[in-house]
């Protein structure tokens, strides 16, 4: 590039008073700026890898899914797709499976807030107060995040098995006959909720610890000097300063929860009993890859996408107003 710049400098190039060939360099920069700014392909070349990946793996599937939601097709390449308009939407929305999945999704989300978003806060504050002594507890809490959900699911099924599970022995010790939690429509969803919460708890504790680490401990000492006790320090200082982390944990956990419970649902209940554990995410899988109803699956996917988008927007708009981002 320097060579190009120098060669374009022209015959009147002269040394700059402070040394160097000022004019050729300036001309070179202008040349590059001109190429970059007026219809050059250079910026697009830099952006190309990301744009290609986004186009192929995000935007095209999104568009194609929207198209598939408007047709009737059974994945057979030899059979053409038939345009059915919004029939797939009305059919899916009116189905018992969708209504059960939507209801269960709301239960999963509602249960996530206290168990996955709020419960890690006192744990993180406690570990934070321990300082370096809390490292071992952090490691213990984070361990479940590293274990495969398949392993966790199988282990939980063994533990809760009403015939030969470990829990049966402990239930017997307190005089209780071990119920079949996984077969009961009222309890199966709670098994999945508790297991998925246990698995994500340590990760969210770690996120809160990162948020707490950014709080200057001088603030706490200043509050103590001002006459504040532990409760006041938490409500008037830690909680407001932790809101950016809380916001992040809330949005990511709620969106992640939709997908995270797929594995335990598929492994432990396959959505049953009586659709009591399925959610919208698993419903899409059931439509698309169990009954091979591509149009229904695509319609469910679009509805799920819209639901997640609305959730994110509402959270950003409503909760963002109360967030203290800058310290």
């Amino acid at each position: 590039m320097v060579d190009t710049a120098l060669s374009n400098a022209g015959p009147d190039a002269r040394p700059h008073p402070r040394g160097g060939l000022q004019r050729p360099l300036a001309a070179g920069w202008a040349h590059l700026r001109g190429r970059a700014g007026t219809g050059s392909l250079v910026p697009w070349l830099y952006l190309a890898p990301t744009l290609v990946l986004l186009a192929v793996f995000t935007y095209w599937p999104l568009i194609h899914t929207a198209y598939l939601s408007l047709v009737e097709w059974n994945l057979n390449p030899g059979q053409p797709a038939r345009f059915v308009g919004l029939d797939n939407y009305s059919r899916v929305a009116g189905s018992n499976l969708f209504q059960a999945a939507l209801g269960n999704t709301l239960v999963y989300l509602a249960a996530s807030i206290p168990l996955k978003v709020l419960l890690p806060i006192p744990i993180a504050v406690f570990l934070w107060s321990l300082g370096s002594k809390g490292h071992i507890y952090r490691a213990v809490l984070f361990l479940p995040t590293l274990i495969s959900f398949v392993v966790v699911g199988v282990a939980v099924m063994w533990i809760l098995n009403p015939i030969f599970g470990y829990a049966k022995q402990y239930a017997a010790m307190i005089g209780i006959r071990m119920p079949n939690l996984m077969a009961d429509p009222d309890t199966a969803i709670w098994v999945i909720i508790v297991v998925s919460s246990w698995k994500v708890l340590g990760f969210n504790v770690l996120l809160y610890l990162a948020g707490l680490a950014s709080i200057n401990r001088d603030y706490i000492e200043a509050m103590r000097m001002d006459g504040a006790g532990d409760g006041t320090i938490f409500t008037r200082l830690i909680w407001p300063l932790l809101t950016p982390t809380l916001m992040f944990v809330l949005i990511s956990t709620l969106i992640f929860t939709m997908q995270q419970v797929f594995t335990p649902i598929d492994l432990m209940t396959q959505g049953g009993p009586s659709n009591s554990t399925t959610n919208l995410f698993y419903m899409v899988y059931q439509y698309s890859f169990v009954t091979f109803d591509v149009g229904g699956g695509a319609a469910g996917t679009v509805m799920l996408f819209l639901l997640l988008m609305v959730m994110a927007l509402v959270q950003l708009r409503l909760i963002d107003r109360r967030v203290q981002y800058k310290q």
Binding site: Y219, M225, L241, Q327
Partner: peptide, 18 residues
């Protein structure tokens, strides 16, 4: 410390940012 009736100015000032 809250019962000692003392006031302190910290090196970082420790003004509550929110």
């Amino acid at each position: 410390s809250k019962e000692r009736g003392l006031a302190m100015v910290f090196q970082s000032y420790a003004l509550y940012p929110h």
